[in-house]
Structures are given as C-alpha cells and as structure tokens.
Computed example of a mutant assay.
Amino acid sequence: MQAITSPATTTPNRITLWSALTSVYILWGSTYLFIHFMTERMPPLYMASIRYIVAGSILYGYARLTGTKRATRAEWKSAGVVGILLLTIANGCLTVGIQYIPTGVAALLGGMLPVFLLTLNWVSFGRQRPTNLALAGLIVGLVGIYFLIKPDKMQGTGGVHANLIGAGLITFGNFSWAIGTLLAPRVSLPSGTISSGIQMLVGGTVLLIISLCVEPVTPWSILDAPAKAIGSMFYLVIFGSIIGFSSYAWLARNASPQLLSTYAFVNPVVAMLLGALFAGEIFSSQSLIGAIVALIGVILITLGRK
C-alpha cells in the first residue's frame, strides 16, 4: 500500500523474520474467508468501506500521536490516488467478486498480480523487458488462469455467468492494484504509517460514497449488521489491515524481495484450505490443475525478475 523502501543492510533476527512471514502467510491468506463471512448478509462495498475507514482512522491517529508530522496537501492527493487504486477499485472488486466465486479461486487469481506488474512495467511504467524466465512464467501463468476460470469446469456459486463476473472483477482489481503499486514510487507520499492511514481513509470514503449510491444502505447500516459480520470486519481491521500490513511493511524493509514475494504462493493455499474447511467450497480437478499451473507461473516470474 505504499512505496517499498530498500532492504536494511543488517541481517534481521530469524525468529522475527519468520514470525512476520508467518503472519503475512496466514493472516492475509485468511482474509478471503473473512471477507466472505463479512458480506454473507451485508452489502459488500459498504462493509469494505467501513473496514478501511476504521483501520485508516486507527493508523492515522497512531501516526499522529507518535509524532509523525502532518502530511502536506500534495502528499494527501498522492496517497489518496494510490488509495483509490488499491482499496476502492482493487479491493472493492475483490470484495464483490468473492460473492460469485469460491474464496480459494479468488485468492489464486489475486496471486497472479505479478503477471500484471510484469506486463505493465514492460509496456508502460518502466519500459523494462522481462527476462526470458519471467516471460516463460507469464505464459505459464496465463495458461493457468485459463484452466482456473474455464466456465464449464469451475465450481462457483451461481453458474457460468457468475464465474465469469467474479473472475472478471478480480482480474480488473489486479490490474488496478498493479497500477497503484507501480505508481506509488513515482509520486510524493508521506512516511509509512500515516501514508497507509490516508490511503485507507480516502479509499474507504470513496468506497462508502459508491456504496450509498448503488447499495440499499445508509451510513448507519452497520448498526443492523449481524454479529458474524461485525466480528469478521474487526478481524479484517486488526489482523488483515493493521497486523498483517505492519508485518508486510517490516518485511519490505528487512527481507529480500524474493522471500517477500513468496506470500503470493502461500496465501492461495491457505485460502483454499480455509474455504474448503469452513465455507464448504468445492473445487473441480480442472480448477486444481489450473491452480498448480498458475502458481508455477508466478514462481517463474519471481525467479526471473532482474
């Protein structure tokens, strides 16, 4: 959710390193299931907006109370744009997409983010040609996506059209997330915690405005939410947005990019297992083959980065 700084020159404590990795592996992998629980009986965009407004308020307030200087107007604008790309569009699409396809499939499609980063950095932002290994990974990843979302094979919740809608939303969300990720280092952002808080506040507020226009809610609908939705939302606020992100931000400063990127391989596995155990999700053999092929593609892309 922010520009990644260069890794620290000192070697981090191995216990701290693996604790942070485990946090990102498990907590971020579990967010797909809890998004599903949060939106079972509540409008998805509305619940996502409340999640980010609450988390953003906590992060922004913490940053200011601990002495972080106030962001300038230019920094607010830049962080707001990144927040809209990452949270309003990308996570908004994910939250709605999970209403149509299993959470494990959604996580696997989300794990294909390196495909979009590689392609956009090649054709637009960086004008940097990928290595041959990364290109091979791109092709393999696209083949995996085809088998994963092939309409006559994927077991979704509402038939062929629902599968395509869900996959299309998450794919578009990946595209927006990739743009936001590549844009972040090129704009003026405030320091880490306050930048994340601003991104969540702006992204959540825009998402709330959209929700009020298209969903049957009012700003106070959260008072009518069932206990399961409220509990899931606070899980996502604390463990997904605050602890999970803090672990990710620490890893971005202290771990190699290759090690950090392994979360893209582990999160889908965690999401698939949790979805099968707690949400009764079923995957066809074709979808599982597609999942394996897609993950191989992501691994090749990661290994092939310059």
Results as ranks from 00 to 15, higher is better:
V54K: 07
Y25G: 08
N163D: 12
T88H: 09
M154F: 15
G126L: 08
F245P: 01
G173V: 08
L259I: 04
Y32D: 07
V82A: 00
L223T: 03
E281T: 06
M38Q: 15
R51I: 10
G275S: 08
S256I: 02
L259T: 11
L108C: 02
T193N: 10
S247D: 00
G304K: 02
S195M: 13
K306W: 07
S285N: 15
S195Q: 07
M154K: 12
I222Y: 15
A229H: 13
F234S: 01
F37C: 05
Y235P: 07
L223K: 06
Y100F: 05
F265Y: 04
I230K: 11
P130G: 01
R41W: 15
L45Y: 08
L207V: 09
V105T: 03
T262W: 15
L182E: 00
R51E: 08
P216M: 09
R253N: 06
A279R: 08
L277H: 13
E215R: 13
S246N: 00
S256Y: 10
I179L: 13
L109V: 11
A79D: 00
V270W: 08
S195G: 13
L303N: 08
V123I: 14
S176D: 03
T131P: 03
L260R: 04
A162H: 11
L182Y: 00
G61K: 08
I230E: 09
G192I: 09
L87K: 14
I139M: 02
H161Q: 14
I222A: 15
L300N: 00
M1H: 13
S191M: 11
Y52D: 04
P226L: 07
A249C: 02
K153D: 15
L133P: 03
F245Y: 04
L17M: 07
I243M: 12
L260G: 04
P216E: 14
T205S: 12
S285F: 13
Y62T: 12
L85N: 05
I139F: 03
A162T: 01
Y235L: 03
I292T: 09
Q2W: 00
R51F: 04
I296Y: 04
G110T: 05
F234N: 02
S191K: 13
I292V: 14
V160H: 04
Y52G: 01
D152R: 12
F265V: 00
L86P: 01
T103I: 01
F278L: 12
Y32W: 05
P7G: 02
V96N: 06
G126D: 13
T68Q: 09
F125S: 03
I292D: 06
A3C: 00
A279C: 06
W28D: 06
K153Y: 15
G158P: 01
T131V: 04
L300K: 05
V298K: 09
F265S: 00
G126N: 10
G92Y: 12
G104Q: 09
I15T: 05
D224N: 05
S188P: 11
G244P: 13
Y248E: 04
L259S: 05
S195R: 07
I101N: 12
E75G: 00
T88Q: 08
A252N: 10
L118I: 05
S285P: 10
Y46C: 14
I145M: 12
